[in-house]
Design a protein around this nucleic acid. Structure first.
Length: 258
DNA sequence: ATGGCAATGTTTCATTGA
């Protein structure tokens, strides 16, 4: 079983690239962020033709999340948003896929430390932690994938000194990220030895990608039961190359059969 | 000290992202 998470930065623009990537990698479940599409415009038939069913919750211009599932795998209990947390921004969708509770998240960016959007981000994190505490009680096999907009540690940052205290790296954000781990989740990437300077996002500007000036802000978190089944976790840097890439690369995990 | 790139709709600029 292969599970992936990818911020595509507009599914409309990225659909050809996504279809090629699905064909090459054949993941079983894909959590997408920043689809930037109203539900009526979601490319259901194109994905069906590629062998994937889709669950989605989108809006015009901003945000938007989806869970793609390889055709034939059972999908149940689809839910949108964070229970009890009113939010017009479409940032969460969840579904149970072949016994794995999958939560796809697009965490607010936070703009800059001290801004209204930063406060929203921290508030949003608290609501997500509360949601995940309830989810893990009902679903011991829980995976949370997406764009968390936090680089958890300095080794997830190309230039920790330059980013110190900045949005995506500030201590309150890192503490908020750790509250998700405290629910009983592991950062799958750190279950294994990894090459240094592995990132999942690079600014489009200043040749950041060829210079590998990036951050690791996209993650797949796994409950203990799933971490025990996890045989690999990696970031597909190749997906950031070439014409019209997303500024994010996908994260993948492999799970052995239970 | 600043902008630098990309996507979108409010479109020939403003806003947002990270």
């Amino acid at each position: 079983m292969i599970l992936a998470a990818w911020n595509v930065n507009s599914l409309n623009v990225r659909l050809p690239r996504l279809l090629g990537w699905l064909e090459a990698n054949r993941p079983d479940v894909v959590c997408l962020q920043e689809t930037k599409l109203e539900d009526a415009r979601f490319p259901v038939s194109e994905l069906d033709a590629a062998g994937y069913s889709a669950q989605f919750s989108g809006q015009k211009t901003y945000n938007g999340v989806a869970i793609l599932v390889r055709s034939g795998l059972p999908v149940t209990d689809v839910s949108m948003g964070i229970p009890g947390y009113d939010d017009v921004q479409k940032r969460v969708i969840a579904a149970t896929v072949a016994g794995i509770r999958t939560v796809c998240v697009y965490v607010p960016n936070g703009q800059s430390v001290g801004s209204d959007k930063y406060a929203y981000k921290l508030d949003w994190y608290a609501a997500l932690a509360q949601m995940l505490r309830a989810e893990i009680l009902h679903h011991p096999s829980l995976a949370v994938g997406g764009d968390f907009n936090v680089a958890p540690e300095d080794r997830d940052v190309h230039d920790p000194a330059a980013w110190a205290g900045q949005v995506l790296c500030s201590e309150p954000e890192r503490a908020a990220f750790r509250t998700l781990l405290d629910v009983g989740l592991k950062d799958s990437f750190r279950l294994f030895d990894q090459p240094e300077n592995t990132f999942s996002w690079w600014d489009y500007r200043q040749l950041a990608f060829p210079k590998n000036r990036g951050l690791r802000i996209d993650h797949i978190l796994l409950s203990e039961a799933l971490a025990a089944r996890c045989t690999a976790s990696r970031i597909d840097r190749n997906a950031r190359k070439g014409e019209k890439p997303s500024d994010h690369a996908p994260v993948l995990v492999e799970l052995r059969d239970s």
